[in-house]
Design a protein around this nucleic acid. Sequence first.
DNA 1: GGCCAATTTCAACAATTGTTGAAAAAGAAG
DNA 2: CTTCTTTTTCAACAATTGTTGAAATTGGCC
Lengths: 225, 225
Amino acid sequence: MSVIRTEPRLDRRTAILDAAEEQFAKHGYDGVTLRAIAKHAGVDVALPNYYFGPKRDLFDAVLLRRAEILNQARLEQLDACLVESERSPTVEAIIRAYLRPMLTGDHVREEGWKNYYALIAYVNNSPEWGGKLMTQFFDPLIERFIDALRLALPGIEDRDLYWAYHCLSGALTLTFAQTGRIDSLSGGLCHSSDLEDAYEHMVRFTAAGFESFRAEASSKKKGRP
Amino acid sequence: MSVIRTEPRLDRRTAILDAAEEQFAKHGYDGVTLRAIAKHAGVDVALPNYYFGPKRDLFDAVLLRRAEILNQARLEQLDACLVESERSPTVEAIIRAYLRPMLTGDHVREEGWKNYYALIAYVNNSPEWGGKLMTQFFDPLIERFIDALRLALPGIEDRDLYWAYHCLSGALTLTFAQTGRIDSLSGGLCHSSDLEDAYEHMVRFTAAGFESFRAEASSKKKGRP
DNA sequence: GGCCAATTTCAACAATTGTTGAAAAAGAAG
DNA sequence: CTTCTTTTTCAACAATTGTTGAAATTGGCC
């Protein structure tokens, strides 16, 4: 009987990362104590420090762990989308490439990914770290998507493009925060937890939003008719 | 010489609320100490507790103070929009009624309002309080806007409508978080602090998003062509 | 077994947390 | 002035924070 023996070192490490991920996502950076993390991970209080150094470094480690995986998955989707369309992708296809990795495979099944996305939502909206950390971990990839969108919307002005992405990012962020607000607002008609439903609606909504900035002769100014 | 003599009691109260508003907005609930608030307000550590009770009650007091003012302003805009259009408003007009109060008058000039909106952004994306607090403070008014949007988009399905509002809320939230991320992402082309610019882009983007859910014969299902 | 390094535990640290009760000061009213 | 209430200060509280260094344990290798 060949028991799979994962090294205890890695077990503890990932247990700490998992616990930290969950706690940070739920209560924010300052709302979490190392003792709470240690307790959830089933380890001693001093162990997080032994592996990751000070609290802040643990936070970064949590953020970094899945960022690379997510970026990789997104990049593959984008490349596939570009190849498939012979470099003439539709806006909708690009948005789907951007969002789909978050709703397929392990990302939907594993609790860890759910926590991670909630954490990203927290970071993205944090005035303290939003600018810095999101830029650091995700913006290089975002540039690729911006380029693709520019391809799909020839003649669009860059300022419009960036603001449109900003709107997409905001909608996505709020979705993954999973606050349950839409549940009560809609009287139980919609559910924060139904990511599939959220996905389809976000795609449609934001695709139309991007399209609205297509370069056209008129309607560039803001005045109402 | 008639010096305006505001009652010191109110001065201290509002000084505490202002300081708390700023600190909570910048660092979140747990990232702020009562001592930091007291110091910024220029009062003793014990005074916040004297006026507002425990820390959590102070937080609620901060949230409540401007919520009523904002809701009132939004309601006026919505009513004016409905009257002006003889109950056939456009989607864009409704969205403008929803967003405009945040960009006119004191709301743009006063630092306090800026902090308040950043705080709302924090709350709206908080898994801990997002559902509860936003519902409590804002959802009664949101229902009015939902009704107006239903009027402007006859035949739209309610589920689509709520998800569309969700997207709008997310974009708005990220805008007011003012993280500076779009500044670096766009290479200085756009600025988080340029709320006028953000406003016009959000209106256009989200109006198109809502319109995309207009009841139509086809394209109800999600499959790609 | 013994040896060495990596890992884990334990206890304690200084600093900081929210909160409180009593004392002090300020204001109002007579 | 005196008297009473409201407001403000002060000092202290128990609890909790992140972090650390030394001791204890474990694991691999000879």
